[in-house]
Design a protein around this nucleic acid. Sequence first.
DNA 1: TGACTGATTCGATGCCTGTCGAAATGAGCC
DNA 2: GGCTCATTTCGACAGGCATCGAATCAGTCA
Lengths: 187, 187
Amino acid sequence: MSADLTARAALFRALSHPARLSLLRLVWTREASGDELARLMNLAPATVSHHLAQLTEAGLILTRQDGHHRLHRAHAAALDLNLADVVRGAAPAPTPDDPYRDRVLRAFLKGGRLTTLPAQRKKKDVILHELVTLFEHGRHYPEAEVNAILGEVYADVSTLRREMIGLGVLKRERGVYWRPEADPTDS
Amino acid sequence: MSADLTARAALFRALSHPARLSLLRLVWTREASGDELARLMNLAPATVSHHLAQLTEAGLILTRQDGHHRLHRAHAAALDLNLADVVRGAAPAPTPDDPYRDRVLRAFLKGGRLTTLPAQRKKKDVILHELVTLFEHGRHYPEAEVNAILGEVYADVSTLRREMIGLGVLKRERGVYWRPEADPTDS
DNA sequence: TGACTGATTCGATGCCTGTCGAAATGAGCC
DNA sequence: GGCTCATTTCGACAGGCATCGAATCAGTCA
């Protein structure tokens, strides 16, 4: 019953640019590396990487390492859906696993500690969503305990706190903190 | 065999915003008027109108007049497509008729003459695409003939010429004009 | 016809996105 | 370890888009 219109919109958003459709079609039957695609499409490698990242995040492209290259191919099965079903919410979640999330977590959380707080918003959100799981639902935390918990992970505790409040994954009132039940970024 | 990635991307673009998905779902089973939708979604009527226009242009919503209201409903049949087919180009054109195009043409072309050249780019493009059909494919036109043909439709011939060249629906070289085979806005 | 009401358009504002060059990263190889 | 090449990230810029209030338009009813 999770409507989650934003997630569905994100799927369509990934498909809403001609260059990305073109990319998908190019890797539909055979694998191709990033700069091969860049050459085929007359785009800068950076731009292709950008588009591939969006397709990957939507779960529409799979990637494997092969020597110096990284080979991409379309995840055709993920697209075998009826449009109307997706719009109405009858189709299964289009992104079963989230490779982007994994990449971000691996990149910034090393040995259980946060190396840097990402500046890019999407990545920061991933990190904050992950870190807030350190708090239990339905419990109230005094600021000192919040600081202790976050301090295990990252030195600049106050920034983390502020960012979590800003994102809404953590709530504060009268110096007491808690983790709200509903994720504010959902539907 | 027409790739026409831009048109396919446009379909996805129409679906790529949560508000538009929400609108589609609201009018999936029952009709609703614009300001009813605005109230339901807590958006300004202007914003809803904007989103409805995009959905309509993509052929996803049908509208009929009823008393003081204009009632909208989802064109569910237009969405009964397989995502992979649309991406690969195997699905039939998602927008069989184009109500937006019709509206623009009716608004600006009266009695076979152009009343005003629209300032809004999307509308101007519609008009220019329509007017360029006055020229045959594979023929070369001296400037005088171009002026004569366009003059039948609109007084400011030089602006029309310039805009068509700019859009790429008309080509010029050494004072000779012709209509290129491929629509530059396709593919 | 005139007036009313809902819908659309216009104009402004702020955010988001596509694009690229340059710099940083990372994976293989010696 | 260092070298090389592909890829990604960063920073910047331009163009596009969502949103709204105000002004305009259009259709209906009296």
